[in-house]
Amino acid sequence: MSTVNSSHLNPSSFVLLGIPGLEAACRWLSIPLSSMYIITLLGNSTLLFIIKIEPSLHKPMYIFLSMLAGIDLVISSATVPKMLGVFLSHAREISFSGCLAQMFFIHSFSVMETSVLVAMAFDRYVAICSPLRYEAILTHPVLLKIGVAVVTRAVALITPLPVLARRLPFCASNEVPHTYCQHMAVVKLACTDVSLNSLYGLSVALYVGVSDILLIGASYSLILRAVLRLPSKEARLKAFNTCGSHICVILIAFVPGLFSILTHRFGHRVAPHTRILLANLYLLVPPTLNPIVYGVRTKQIRDRVSRVFWKRKGLP
């Protein structure tokens, strides 16, 4: 099965094995997988469309939300079509460069997603703790700088992963026991010491996870303190409701990711198919649920979606 380039000791392609141990269930797994992908495409595209056409939604909170929707579309499109090819048509082969490119896009946009969640937590902090200065603080130049920082941080942190992986000699097997080119799943195939790759990957995961969770936690601690000082019960409920959808999205994004990282690095007793399923949930669940959570919990988006579809159906 191994195709080796003798001059560079790199395979011309990799073979994605899917979910070892669950080969018989792959066709059944493709049903929820394709359903989640369709919901992701429709939901996030609808969010982007509604935010674009509705002037009242051209505010920092919804600009961050549109960034999140765009990131979710890229992550799901970089993974699901190839997964479906592996599950349904046994189109398991992926070129060496294509594998490294997929690795870069998946991991970099995952970092961008958590960075945007930090920016959204800061947005909620300013909106609740300094409402009179909200528009003065989160101006369009500031939003542009935040967007550039989100992209720059992700690219700077993740670029070394495929660069270091390209330098490894893959002179044994080219079969990746995964549904996509996950960093460690590919690196473990090298026939040399990969401690540098493993250490850097773990360092990035810990840095991004810990720093982003601490920043989000600090923002919401200040928000909670400010909300509890509000004299009116209705005002407190309104403030909590404003943050509710964002808290749901944070939990959706971080909980599967935390389990995936811990089981992949330290859960040696966890079955391989369980680790792979967790890694897939980490990538696919947030893009599927984010537009549903925001669409249901955000009144402005919900009302605008209703008006758009009612008009198209000719309803009053």
Rank of each mutant, 00 (worst) to 15 (best):
V155C: 09
M103S: 03
S66M: 01
V116W: 03
F96R: 03
S45Y: 01
F49H: 09
L57W: 02
A127S: 02
M67C: 08
Y62A: 02
I53D: 09
A121L: 04
L16P: 05
T40F: 08
Y37N: 00
G147N: 11
L17K: 13
M103H: 00
C26A: 15
K52H: 14
P131D: 09
G98E: 00
D72E: 12
S56V: 06
P141Y: 09
L47A: 08
L100V: 00
A127E: 05
R133F: 13
V148D: 11
G147D: 11
P141H: 09
R133I: 10
A121K: 06
A156I: 14
L117D: 06
I39P: 02
Y134T: 07
F96K: 03
M103W: 00
L41T: 06
K59D: 12
L73G: 05
P81W: 04
K52T: 11
F105V: 14
L57E: 01
K82R: 14
I31P: 01
K52F: 13
S76K: 03
E54A: 13
F122R: 13
K52R: 15
G18Q: 00
H90V: 13
A136E: 15
I75E: 08
R92S: 10
T152S: 15
E135T: 14
S77I: 04
L41C: 04
F64N: 05
P55T: 07
S115I: 12
A101Q: 12
S110M: 11
A91W: 13
S97I: 10
R27I: 13
I71S: 06
C26E: 15
A156V: 14
S66R: 06
T40P: 07
S130P: 10
Y125W: 09
G98Q: 06
G98C: 02
L57P: 02
M103C: 08
L22Q: 09
H107K: 09
V118M: 08
P32T: 08
L73P: 03
S97R: 13
N44A: 07
G43P: 00
L132W: 13
L17Q: 12
I51A: 01
L68K: 12
V118Q: 04
P60V: 04
G147I: 12
R153P: 06
G147P: 08
I63R: 10
S35H: 09
L84E: 01
H58Y: 05
M83Q: 11
L42V: 15
E93V: 12
T152N: 14
L33G: 09
L143F: 07
C99T: 08
